[in-house]
């Protein structure tokens, strides 16, 4: 993993420092997670501004995914506070946080493998639908409309992420790796999030595919007004797309700032490459 990738000519303009918690869409304040005796995340503060792309980087085992899992409610923080748009959501259930507008993808693709691409994306809209047990059985016109609308939107969303129409009704498990990534992003987008968390979206992609994804992320920010929080190992992607970067190592925040600042930070280089001499 190299930190000295070629400098992107179109490097993003420096964003205001994201640590300033006021006005952030989502902020984690002094968050820690302790598993037994292991401190996986220690006192980390990160703020995600609106309509910006920010990244968390760090070596393997730095606590990035644990941090993600706290933001999305899969883990309850041992200490600290998570605030979404002014509301404290610390310890809320994942489905509630999702309904509040935070959607995610997973490091290991977690599609519902025996459901079709369209059905997967329809599941993503669960929190935006209303049909209950009785409604599902009796299927009054309202539920029928909702069901059709959901399917329609799922297809639109799959088109938006660039899936070919003929693969819409394939089982997720039959899709190519890149298409599975696309469906996972479509599934997250279908929930109409304000914040999208992407956990190593370019893992297993070739440079061309990563390039396409980078452009796509910018499109999401500009066209859908989304904030994106990215965990990524590919420095070219990170440096090319992020407006703010937070670096974690051994569960602690060791640096943050715009890409240029982070790239030059000696502690970051040390974390990745080891101490010199």
């Amino acid at each position: 993993m190299s930190t000295s990738g070629s400098i992107d000519p179109g490097a993003p303009e420096v964003a205001e420092l994201a640590t300033e918690v006021e006005g952030a869409l989502l902020s984690a304040e002094n968050v820690s997670k302790i598993f037994g005796g292991l401190v996986a995340v220690n006192d980390v503060t990160v703020a995600i501004p609106r309509k910006k792309i920010v990244s968390i980087i760090g070596p393997n085992g730095a606590g990035k995914t644990t941090f993600f899992n706290m933001l999305t409610g899969l883990y309850k923080p041992s200490r600290g506070k998570i605030v979404l748009d002014g509301a404290d959501i610390t310890g809320h259930r994942p489905d509630k946080i999702m309904a509040g507008g935070v959607a995610r993808t997973f490091q290991n693709i977690r599609l519902f493998s025996t459901m079709t691409a369209v059905e997967n994306v329809m599941v993503g809209q669960h929190a935006r639908m209303r049909a209950g047990l009785i409604g599902s059985i009796l299927r009054p016109p309202r539920v029928g409309r909702e069901e059709r609308g959901t399917r329609e939107k799922a297809r639109d969303m799959l088109g938006f992420v660039g899936l070919e129409t003929k693969t819409f009704d394939e089982l997720a498990i039959n899709l190519s790796y890149g298409d599975q990534r696309r469906v996972e992003i479509a599934r997250a987008l279908a929930s109409e999030p304000r914040l999208l968390l992407l956990d190593e979206p370019t893992a297993g992609m070739n440079p061309q595919e990563s390039e396409v994804l980078t452009t796509f992320m910018k499109r999401l920010r500009d066209e859908l007004d989304l904030s994106i929080l990215l965990i990524e190992h590919d420095m070219k992607v990170v440096m090319g797309v992020s407006e703010h970067i937070t670096v974690l190592d051994h569960g602690e925040k060791i640096a943050e700032g715009d890409p240029a600042t982070v790239r030059a930070n000696p502690r970051v280089i040390e974390a990745y490459l080891g101490k010199q001499g």
């Binding site: 995610r104 977690r110 599941v123």
Partner: peptide
């Protein structure tokens, strides 16, 4: 239905299901 898909989603992957708002 919405509910049937949610059931199958839970059967397939509980973590993903709850993260998708179920």
């Amino acid at each position: 239905s919405r509910l049937g898909r949610a059931w199958i989603a839970i059967r397939e992957d509980e973590v993903a299901a709850v993260s998708m708002g179920i």
